[in-house]
Design a protein around this nucleic acid. Structure first.
Lengths: 110, 110
DNA sequence: ATAAATTATCGTAATATTGCAATATTGTAA
DNA sequence: TTACAATATTGCAATATTACGATAATTTAT
């Protein structure tokens, strides 16, 4: 089939999955790391930094934006892309919750 | 094409992406949450908990295992699946690093 | 040995993703 | 207006993912 059965899972699970999926590509990890490293965040820079063609980068940016990981504002002839702290905080909390609770488990059998 | 250009990115970026990708499906988020909620972690339970057929669940477990998110041991007629603290710590550190550094940024322009 | 229970694998269909060339769109400058 | 620069969209080919029925493999119990 190829289509996920999202309706069978909770909103929270779908949200975490959608954001994780958006980060699940090395180019998009690279974009996130680049946006974190610069203060001014113009997309033109990103195209030059990544080893991908401009339409491909634009597509990756679109997916990150759809998932809420980044935000973008029109800024004249360029576009200002930035990380979205809210989305990344949700992911941080999710993984912090997991690692905290793993430690408290008695039977880590494997 | 459909094939990611993994060779153009760093090992670290590929590792983060591979793990995030593995979590990028609501069924696999549900599996992780379930493994976190129980002490004994037998796969039979998971099949009953998820709204998916047994082969599909088995496939999701395989992907989580390939990405290092979970570990599995043969346990008689069942298989004991557990979360892998090492992998989840890497992700936690990645997102903690991001959220920490976002706060320190001066120009969050969007 | 046989049967039952549990998980994995195979095969296949439907759909999604990745990547890029070509082209469109939008804003700036002359 | 026209030309230029930056980003988005379209269209397409190659590949990957998702899901499940059928079947295989493995272990336990009888």
């Amino acid at each position: 089939m190829g289509a996920s059965k999202t309706e069978h899972f909770s909103d929270k699970q779908n949200q975490i999955a959608a954001m994780a999926k958006a980060i699940g590509h090395p180019a998009r990890v690279a974009i996130i790391e680049y946006l974190l490293s610069v203060d001014t965040c113009i997309c033109g820079d990103i195209v030059n930094v990544l080893p991908l063609a401009q339409p491909t980068v634009s597509q990756h940016l679109k997916e990150l934006k759809n998932a809420g990981i980044i935000k973008g504002n029109i800024e004249g002839t360029a576009i200002c892309y930035c990380l979205n702290p809210d989305a990344l905080s949700i992911l941080e909390a999710f993984f912090a919750h997991i690692t905290t609770h793993i430690k408290n488990k008695e039977t880590n059998c494997c």
